[in-house]
Design a protein around this nucleic acid. Structure first.
Lengths: 228, 228
DNA sequence: TCTTGTGAAATGCTTCACAGCA
DNA sequence: TGCTGTGAAGCATTTCACAAGA
């Protein structure tokens, strides 16, 4: 499925499976926990325990970007964090926008702002006049009409779409026109975007419905539940 | 990765890829849209247009459960909806619980209740005394102490975990002890559960961080953004 | 001796290509 | 003729097994 050439950090020139990219933040979190406990050198076996991924897989994922471990010893936790943050582009702050200040959009704003230091939500957009001008945890809600200007002037490249399904495609078209490159989409629709824009869908209804399958088939040989 | 034997609806006795299970709700949604437009017979090509999946893939997914199309014609939309709903266990109502009545839990409660007829949230749990006894869109918030009793007595098998990371493992242990079989987990931790319990993680920080990769690598040959 | 890094094998999933049937 | 259903082929990803090296 998804691939991407590594040119970013110049280590190699191979294509990276998208599944690997999706695991990198998991490693980052495990490393941060380990470092808080004073760990400085970490093995792939230790990371495996923290993440649930196999040690071989972890080594293979990391090796895509170069050899930054020491044989017989392990990885420097600090170096590894630096490298992964660099690979993901988290070494410089990223501005994001949320479109839709309903229940979900508001919850996401508060949630994100509390958690993420690297990715900051700096603007929220909504078309409800009653909400425009409000501040959600210090971030201002702008009108839909201001969206393109604000996105462009702040060079926001990452957007979270939490609008009703009927509005989503129009919103995404505007976002893309204003320069957004990656979208986290909560609207239950199949958005169409240019090839060079990346959309990650999170569809809560679909997730719940597929879980129903596993509820019903209780007697079966299902996999234990890690990282579905 | 994940497999599951079909015994549910008795059509066959093959193992179903978990990716197929995750696509079934997408087909359901497309079918519902098509039926609203008066479509009664639908081809895999038409479903492909609505879902973004290839027609071969759709045919293969459906064929896992038996042959319910007609060669040269297509699938009966009504029959297909019935069959998929049955396969997923959505032919009878499913009671779900939300644990955690913070911003996210509350947003999920309102979101779910608005959207999903088959899967109904019938209880919310929280340990904040100020919230206990409240009603969120008509669903009562119970204390953490009542959780196991309520889950057991209502035979709730599906739970949504939206508690802080420090509480998540304890909550899940309790849920599993009370009979929950499938969990949608929003807490940023690697939960451990018995093999016969299914956990689907949705981790907003991780999603955002992996999106950062695609924002940075803007000049590259990324895949177009469907169904990442 | 220990753990990384990595070809090779195995597995899982998708796409191809076409037989089968209305 | 047209569209489903399905083996076979082709990819993508994971796991195995072990050489390399501190």
């Amino acid at each position: 499925m998804g691939w991407r050439r590594v040119t970013n950090d110049g280590v190699r020139n191979v294509r990276i499976p998208s599944v690997t990219v999706r695991r990198l933040p998991v490693y980052l979190r495990a490393l941060s926990q380990l470092r808080q406990r004073g760990v400085e050198i970490v093995s792939s076996a230790e990371l495996s325990r923290y993440t649930g991924y196999s040690s071989e897989q972890i080594r293979k994922d990391l090796a895509y970007f170069g050899a930054f471990g020491t044989r017989g010893v392990g990885y420097s936790a600090e170096l590894l964090v630096q490298r992964i943050r660099c690979i993901l582009g988290l070494d410089q702050p990223i501005a994001a926008a949320i479109v839709g200040a309903g229940h979900l959009g508001t919850a996401l704003a508060r949630y994100n702002i509390a958690r993420d230091r690297d990715i900051r939500v700096t603007a929220i957009f909504d078309d409800d006049p009653a909400k425009i001008g409000l501040s959600i945890d210090g971030v201002r809600v702008y009108s839909a009409g201001e969206m393109q200007d604000v996105i462009r002037s702040r060079q926001i490249k990452l957007a979270i779409v939490a609008v009703p399904e009927g509005a989503a495609q129009r919103v995404v078209d505007e976002l893309v026109a204003a320069g957004v490159r990656a979208v986290l989409n909560f609207a239950p629709v199949n958005l169409s975007v240019p090839d060079d824009v990346y959309v990650q869908d999170i569809d809560l209804s679909l997730e719940l419905q597929s879980l129903a399958y596993y509820v019903a088939g209780a007697a079966n040989s299902g996999r234990g539940g890690r990282h579905g």
